[in-house]
Amino acid sequence: MNQHITSAMSQAFGRFASKEHKKYFQNIINRSYVRMMGLDMSEFDAPDTYPTLNALFTRKFRHKRSFSSDPKDMISPCDSLITECGKIEDDTALQIKGMRYSVDEVLGEGISDDAKKSIHNGTFVNFYLSPRDYHRYHAPIDMQVLHAVHIPGKLYPVNIPSLKKQVNLFIENERVVLECLSGEGKRFFMILVGALNVGKMVVSFEPRIQTNSNALNPSQYSYRELYLSKGDDFGCFMMGSTIVMLCEQEMVEFGISTGHKVSFAQTIGRLTF
């Protein structure tokens, strides 16, 4: 399979965003991006302190956000817009209203049939991170990571207009699938979906995953004792993108709806154990 043009375009943008330009020019780039996108920098360092545009994209908080310590509370893994959420009907979920996709297909061949079946008739949430959002992602609960699967693919935009017109966008785009367990042994998946101009999707616990590269075949990684605590930072998008969460039946009752804007650390659901 030849590299798709969306991947080539995104690699070119990634090289520009990763380049450390002369200080005065970098300051112009950073300030222009903040102004153009309307970034709220109140929780972050000043734009002039970031040596590259990617450093600005992947900025960290000056002070950690607080969140509920109740182990039953699930928090949002990111700052985002909820583009869709609801019940998985058999193996079908919504990309956006009127546009469905198969969760089995989005999980890919690297996930076992039994693991796929465990989330049939469960629940799903699609988190869309716009270019103005905080780009890092965090563990929504205390969790164990069983597998990570990198699936190369295209890099179509994942904004609302694209979700409405591009059939099977989540299935065609590059993605990283994380198979996880809650503390009570309930299975869920976090799927990091690439998008146009996403220079990289970084998974901090698995440096072998190199996205937006020349990889053409899926790669799989398994773990025996990999645990993340609620709120742990485990990577970032280098531009806006989407996280899809797929949960087993009777694992969580979500308190959010389509169209809600959520922030990392905000309680979005309650585990039902």
Rank of each mutant, 00 (worst) to 15 (best):
E84T: 00
A17S: 15
S18K: 15
E250K: 14
N27M: 11
F188P: 05
Q249D: 13
C85N: 04
G110A: 10
C180L: 09
H147D: 15
Y221P: 02
I209S: 01
R132T: 06
D91G: 09
D79E: 08
H21Y: 15
T242Y: 01
S112A: 13
D91P: 05
H21K: 12
L56R: 00
R31P: 08
G38L: 05
A17N: 13
L226E: 10
K186C: 07
Q266G: 00
P131H: 09
C78L: 05
D142F: 07
A12T: 13
A17M: 11
G235V: 05
D48N: 12
F188Y: 13
Q166W: 11
S241V: 00
M239A: 11
H4L: 12
K87I: 15
L53R: 04
L192Y: 04
Y221D: 07
R65W: 10
I209T: 07
D45C: 11
V177Q: 02
G240A: 09
E109P: 06
V202C: 03
I141Q: 06
L129E: 03
D104P: 07
V202E: 05
F61V: 03
F205L: 01
E253L: 11
E250T: 10
D91R: 13
A139K: 04
G269L: 03
E89Y: 09
S102C: 12
R175T: 00
P157T: 06
G240S: 04
N214W: 12
F205C: 09
K200F: 10
